[in-house]
Design a protein around this nucleic acid. Sequence first.
DNA 1: TTTTATTTGCGTATTTCTTACGCATTGCAC
DNA 2: GTGCAATGCGTAAGAAATACGCAAATAAAA
Lengths: 215, 215
Amino acid sequence: MDLSNPLYKNQGIHVNIVLFTVNNGEIDVLLVKRNNQPFVGQWALPGGAVYNNEDTNDAMNRELFEKTGIKNIDAKVFSVFGNPNRAPQMRMLGIGYIAVIDKSAISFIRKSQKTDDADWFNIDEIPQLAYDHNEMVSKALEYLKQQVWQGGILKTLFPNGVTIPELYEVYSKILGQNLDRRNFRKKLLNDNILQDTEQVVKYKGKKSSKIYKII
Amino acid sequence: MDLSNPLYKNQGIHVNIVLFTVNNGEIDVLLVKRNNQPFVGQWALPGGAVYNNEDTNDAMNRELFEKTGIKNIDAKVFSVFGNPNRAPQMRMLGIGYIAVIDKSAISFIRKSQKTDDADWFNIDEIPQLAYDHNEMVSKALEYLKQQVWQGGILKTLFPNGVTIPELYEVYSKILGQNLDRRNFRKKLLNDNILQDTEQVVKYKGKKSSKIYKII
DNA sequence: TTTTATTTGCGTATTTCTTACGCATTGCAC
DNA sequence: GTGCAATGCGTAAGAAATACGCAAATAAAA
């Protein structure tokens, strides 16, 4: 590679994270409001440019922390966005990360110097976003649907235990269809990913239900 | 992003393709011999640096063509290699592409100005490669194993039709285990991905077998 | 207070998919 | 010819997915 060739100049790398959470059976995505050029004032996915001495995973966590105060997320790459014109100033390669976390485990979302606002948005009410971030969100959701049964990606969602009815809501919402509650329970218990904690929880208007830990 | 900040300077993007083919029931990977710095004289995956006005998919096909003469491969990103020190000169982000093609559909492999040699290597006899390309190959193979049953990735392997015994060899080799020939046939026919062509083919030493098209 | 509706949780029957394996036929090697 | 491996069809047992009945808990409506 000839470093003096202008064809190789002015390329950057963007990392962005589509951070999902589940709230009352609704799927939310974390967005931040941009306060600098380009796309000032528009909502966007948390993320930013990677330093030249920085691993992309580290960059993703650094940008997430800087813009929202959230630390150490174990996210996975779900896609790469390689269109050279996806950013206006210069070529920015886009790396899309995805994770699902427990919102209540985050004490607060920090609105840093770098953002005017940060908040969770229902997946059905996402505004027009900066860059190609709307496309990123929909691709991430597709990926989530494919991955939801083969585990892993939901482990961090309920660090303090979960009931089967709660999991039922999450799966139904992600997959966009109503599963049979009785067969859903059977499959989960059969898959040996739930550990009985001997505890129960009682929500208003419902029967009390057992709390499990996801292994 | 502050373009004058040295933290953002000297970043490049590498695309590399792990191009698999199947030969006599063996899995081969296409490698090229480097003839310029760094790693002169060492074998490597086809690929190279992305131009700043170029889509990454286009860059992958351009580099593949320049170095081997192979055109228009429909490859998928299987992983991103984001370690900032994976290339010696400067930070090069690595994008790993994967595809499986029919070797016989390629008239010849061109040894261009840019490479001293280009050849297929059996997956069990891959030499020490440039950069982190050995890791790329093994990650691509993992990805291939995961994806082999849910179709798509093998479609281009047999453009002129295929027999079930031929597919049996491919699947067995990729998955690294001997499947039951009779159940393998049943599953393929049941999955409705094979279209009977009413033709048969006869290989020396074997019974004649039906030719199917993969849909 | 009684009734009604909803939710959790367990059980059972049916169907579909996977796995194991028997066997006739073809074709090469000897 | 005999022997052996490959193709291709079939059947049976086992595992997994699906459909649905039903009892107990609970809250809200009558």
